[in-house]
Design a protein around this nucleic acid. Structure first.
Lengths: 160, 160
DNA sequence: TATTGTTATACTCTATAACTATA
DNA sequence: TATAGTTATAGAGTATAACAATA
């Protein structure tokens, strides 16, 4: 198992490190996926600030919007959030009158989650903003490249 | 601004929510990139457990391995870590005798970071394990698709 | 005056155990 | 008994301010 090129021999008068070599990390999918996700999230935080929504809040509201009556448990499973950690988020969103809990029609233990009128109105704008912001972040990709990228990402994390 | 198909009319005897619809979130690059990154990281944590390396530790060691003499400041800039948060990591890696601090040749304030012999030996195995693990996670992608995916991700987060 | 490394500290995120009320 | 929602709490991860030594 050969070690490729001999290291830059630190014992010379070489200037320690001038330009940092990250070529190995850049061969790793995990490294690149994380950097890309963080880049998008940075812009997300800026542009969604007017709505006071962080990515998790947005995900919760969006899933509730498209699945009225969904239970907390279902939300947790879908988004990979642990139940104790969801409670605070839902409480906060309820205090902001964007979301509300109603008794589940057939399970006395569960609560169905719904958007309020204000919540629905806000999410229409917020989802549009999110889509626009992503298009900006991915502006160096053609529409076809973006579709390819998303489809390949799904292949990585999707169960089947 | 029309609202597409009428909602599943919760007021009927409909079963609240049966299958959760995440189709909107799945159109978002940020959502998909984050899910994919988390999927890779999960497997990373399992398979790198024998080395007792979390993703950050691995990144630090890998960059030091390929850039002997690099300063803490350079490491922080490269990996997006804040200086106060790097201190503890380097201390821990130093205590494990994988890394060591040496005075910088030309800057009395700075310390150059280097891998120990044990650190170099371990990272040769660890980097091989990381590459193998990623190939497994991306097993549903062809080699060409994986190359495409990584190249598109770089286009998203890279400065230029 | 500016920068490197560091300490102290606070805030957020994520994780575990255990309780209650319903099933 | 098992599950939904909740509480309390612990542990990572991430953030800012400030200081000593050196540039």
């Amino acid at each position: 198992m050969p070690r490729p090129p001999s290291p830059p021999s630190r014992s010379t008068s070489a200037p320690a490190v001038e330009t940092v070599d990250t070529s190995f990390l850049e061969t790793l999918l995990g490294y690149n996926a994380r950097r890309a996700a963080l880049a998008v999230i940075d812009v997300f935080l800026e542009r969604m600030a007017p709505y006071q929504l962080k990515p998790v809040d947005f995900s919760v509201l969006s899933v509730v919007a498209h699945n009225p009556g969904i239970t907390s448990r279902q939300l947790c499973t879908t988004l990979g959030i642990l139940p104790p950690n969801l409670v605070g988020m839902v409480n906060a969103l309820e205090k902001r009158e964007l979301i509300l809990r109603e008794p589940h029609p057939r399970d006395g233990r569960a609560m169905g989650l719904h958007l309020t009128g204000a919540g629905q109105k806000m999410m229409r704008d917020a989802e549009q903003t999110a889509a626009a912001l992503e298009a900006d972040v991915a502006s160096r990709l053609s529409p076809t490249e973006l579709r390819t990228l998303i489809s390949l990402l799904k292949k990585v994390y999707r169960p089947a």
